[in-house]
């Protein structure tokens, strides 16, 4: 059974003068235990908002989110707090996601407090958690500003692990780090996953990180998924022109030649005023009339992944057969 099931998730923000921004507009996916789903897209595509809605930082406007088999909409008070132990998040900014006035040990201990670990056992557990994320236990008495960015992200991970969650969302968790440190943190996340069967929702705009970290990859554009498939499907033979353009923009080893065809021009349109039809059509070099009028739905394409594009070819017959 999947640990995360998201169906038709919608998140709206209302701006002044009654303008509604559909930051997330009908997104569906699942994550299995022990799996990493990558969520990629440019900034403003709504990928962070998806994570925030899953954690109930932002309230969804519609759709259904089930975590550990439980619908999280409408949870309040104690049951909301209980749910929060199921899913945790590691944030982008290692400088801001730890309270600068709190010692590392106290920050990690707070997770244990929430989980109901008796006070006597907490110092030992804090030490274990710090060591689990590769930090010396002596760091417990340090303050965040005495740590490097990578060390702070390790603390963030330790804090998340403290409540023993089933899922962790990593929202650009390594984007702010130096490349060498980035690899270490990614490896740490992998290690933890192998040990404990955690599921990750791994959010990043950086496709090379994604290729390293994700088992399956979903590509988001203006609040909607445009392509979702296994890592090899999406990176090896992207079907959506947007995915192709993204891959063309970064030198990814082994990216197909098709991916190099498309150049991405211009800025993404404002989600407050999305284009008609396929939201990508104003920037799509292949756009045709149908793209301007009709919105494509996600469908199985050649190669087996799902893509939302009128022009991507359907799977050949032998592929479609089970």
């Amino acid at each position: 059974m999947n640990i995360v099931e998201v169906e038709n998730l919608r998140v709206h923000f209302s701006r002044r003068r009654g303008v509604t921004v559909r930051a997330v507009d009908g997104v569906s996916f699942t994550i299995a235990p022990g799996e990493t789903l990558g969520l990629a897209g440019e900034s403003g595509s709504g990928k962070s908002t998806v994570a925030r809605a899953l954690l109930r930082i932002t309230d969804p406007a519609g759709g259904r989110v089930r975590i550990g088999g439980r619908d999280i909409a409408g949870l309040r008070g104690a049951s909301l707090k209980a749910f929060r132990r199921q899913m945790q998040m590691v944030y982008q900014d290692p400088y801001d996601s730890l309270d600068p006035r709190m010692k590392i040990g106290a920050t990690v201990e707070e997770a244990l407090l929430v989980k109901g670990v008796p006070a006597a056992e907490r110092p030992g557990r804090v030490r274990e958690l710090l060591e689990r994320v590769g930090l010396p236990a002596a760091f417990a008495v340090r303050y965040p500003h005495e740590l490097s960015g990578g060390q702070r992200q390790r603390v963030s991970i330790a804090r998340a692990l403290g409540v023993d969650p089933a899922v962790i969302a990593c929202d650009e968790a390594v984007s702010a780090l130096d490349v060498s440190v980035r690899a270490q943190i990614l490896n740490l996340l992998k290690d933890i996953q192998e040990d404990s069967g955690l599921a990750y929702l791994f959010i990043s705009h950086d496709l090379s990180t994604m290729r390293f970290a994700a088992d399956r990859v979903a590509i988001m554009y203006l609040g909607r998924l445009v392509e979702i498939g296994t890592r090899d499907q999406v990176f090896g033979a992207p079907r959506h022109p947007y995915t192709q353009a993204l891959l063309a923009a970064v030198p990814v080893p082994g990216a197909s030649r098709a991916a190099r065809r498309v150049r991405l021009a211009g800025e993404p349109p404002s989600p407050a005023h999305p284009p008609t039809g396929c939201a990508f059509h104003p920037r799509c070099p292949l756009a045709q009339d149908v793209c301007r009028t009709t919105r494509p739905e996600l469908a199985v394409k050649q190669g087996g992944q799902l893509a939302a594009c009128h022009l991507a070819s359907e799977p050949a017959r032998e592929e479609a057969a089970p």
């Binding site: 209980a82 945790q88 996601s97 309270d99 709190m102 707070e110 963030s156």
Partner: peptide
């Protein structure tokens, strides 16, 4: 972000106000 992080941890409002 550290306040959001603490809240998603499941920490109560009073503790967030006093400690964070």
């Amino acid at each position: 972000e550290f306040v959001t992080a603490t809240r998603t941890l499941g920490v109560g409002n009073v503790r967030i106000m006093v400690r964070h």
